[in-house]
Amino acid sequence: MQITRQVAEQNNMIKVTSLLVEIGQFSGVEPHALEFAWEFVSKGTVAEGSTLEIERPPLVLFCTHCLIEYPGDMEDLRCPNCKDEVFEIRKGREMLVRSISGDKKTEKE
């Protein structure tokens, strides 16, 4: 909401109509809960009634032993090849606001 308010202000938006957010599968955020919360948080603000479009990047892991990227199984993060070696999270923890759209206030002579 803080980001939205700032962007709306800086861009002379009179109304925020939609937001595109990226919520990774491994971020711990439940999209339905976020949508539900957004409706309440945005009430009475410049973003009231705005739609929230949520992208869900899947979990992508990288095995530092086999040097391969592999799709993460949320219940077993280990590399499918070597099982117990160390891995890095390449994708899936994102929590980003990608864009904000709104109606702009215009000044005319």
Binding site: I3, M95, L96, G102, E107
Partner: peptide
């Protein structure tokens, strides 16, 4: 004098890559 006129059809899209938890 500048007169403010609202044209709702003028849509502005602001592209960001802002971390939601950046403030935290």
């Amino acid at each position: 004098m500048t007169e403010q006129k609202i044209i709702p059809s003028e849509v502005k899209v602001v592209r960001l890559e802002e971390e939601i938890l950046a403030a935290n």
